[in-house]
Design a binder for these strands. Sequence first.
DNA 1: GCCGTTTTCGGCCCGACTGTTTTCAGTCG
Length: 575
Amino acid sequence: MGKNKILCEIFSQIADALDFLGENPFKISAYRKASRVLEDYPTDVEEVYRGGGITALTSIPGIGAAMSKKIAEFLETGRMRKYEEVISQAPQDLLKLMDVQSIGPKTLKLAYDRLSVRSVQDFKRVLADGSLADLPGMGHKKVENIKDGLELYERMSERIPLGLAFPIVQETVREIEQLPQVKSISACGSFRRMKETVGDIDILCTGDGGDKIIDHFVHLPGITRILGAGETKGSVIFSDRYQMDLRVVPTGSYGAALQYFTGSKQHNIHLRTIAKGRGLKISEYGVFREEESVGGREEQDVYRVLGLRWIPPELREDLGEVEAAAADSLPQLIQSDDMKGDLHVHSRYSDGTVTLEELLDETRRRRYQYIAVCDHSRSAKYARGLEVETLMEKVENIRKLNEESKGAKLLAGTEVDILPNGSLDYPDEVLKELVFVIAAIHSWRKEEDVTHRILTAMESPLVHVIAHPTGRLISTRQAYQVDMDRVIEKAAQTETALEINAYYDRLDLSDTYVRRAKELGVKLAIGTDAHNIGQLWMIALGVGVARRGWCERPDVLNSWDYEQIIQWTRQKGQR
DNA sequence: GCCGTTTTCGGCCCGACTGTTTTCAGTCG
């Protein structure tokens, strides 16, 4: 997988550099597209190349003859001449500024040519001393906008984890939809697509009196800065951190606008290309044949006029969903309503704050059939991992509670540590007493490749799920070294499920791996990893990841009835 | 640089906004 990411980065840098150098825009977008394709490409390009050479590489969408040669060169020699050549003409440090609002390649090139600007530092200098403002085509307002952009960039350069945006969006939507003028409202953008992180938050609504709606919006509690407020668009910073935009559009184009602002950009480009071939034009105002509107009130209109099924937002990444919609073979995606339980929750026995009784109550309150109580195992001292004796006491308590409980059940489980040699932190006779065993790596040496540990753990028939398989934390920690291709293959072979850990900072497995796992028939188990009641809602984030991974009900254990889960885990134990 | 039941050459998504201009370039989503 590593090579895909590196090539993705290389092509992206080439694109930025070519942009800076004023190359043919279509060539630039070809590199951007190739970069994007590789970012999400499910197979290691190195594997593709070893298997079928340059010809095989050209079968990757967006990769043609020229780029295949460059990829091959890189794989063979570890270098790419085109990259080196282009990079030498465009200072990397400067190109970082392309991410800043109001700064683009032309501005940078201008500063480079006329003011010998070579670095971010140089750029800040010519910004401050007024020399940039004096250049032709520039001016004081432009420079002010760039200064604002730079300030915002430095404060908010990181994307926001979806789980942090979630409550903010819910609350804001609730506030706005209460206004009498508002007819329909929806979040859009990467939030609606349930991407694991979001850049800013986009909300769209339709109604009368846009200025009143916007005015209400920009004065909501928690807003710390108003960036703009007109009749159709308001833009604010919430809590000094989150940029949030609200747009008000006419009812007749609400669907088209919703589709448009939901993206992704690549998805929309694909749709527009199809539309064009049919003599149609799609914009955020609707779908048009010549000047005549042929749809746009409902989001479905946009897809319908192209002869496509409506595509769920989570799939809109131009990763095959348009083709699937055309062939009427879109997946029946799993939904939040399908969740019959949570498959990874901690209790007070280890490092959680909740009692078994409270968890059972919560199981009922959420209309679940079950919650799997998976506390840490004895080696996890930092998390108050359970000694065997305590674990057995917990199992007995769960048995009693379940006996008295109608409907809702707790699954007696553990999140057992996978030890450095791949063995498990409890002996088999202990694990046999448990209904649901998820195994996880919690400690590893720097640079250690943990693949063999996970593969070994999956060989145990007593392990049902591998929890947070890559160990990454979205905001703070890289994944450990692990060959996920082998893990997923082994999971298929041993019928071990892989977890979609739904805790907002994990979302591990991530969507790309989920999709690959699903394709190999691997089952997924969504668990919130909640340590208190207030974290159980995150199951919604896990469902989002599953949907982005094209999962249907049979793929996800949580959609199964209690009895089915029990039967499945037993079967695995008896192999 | 990519791509093809309209094309192997000539296209490549589209519109708005802003600021600088006097008809348009740059940037954004």
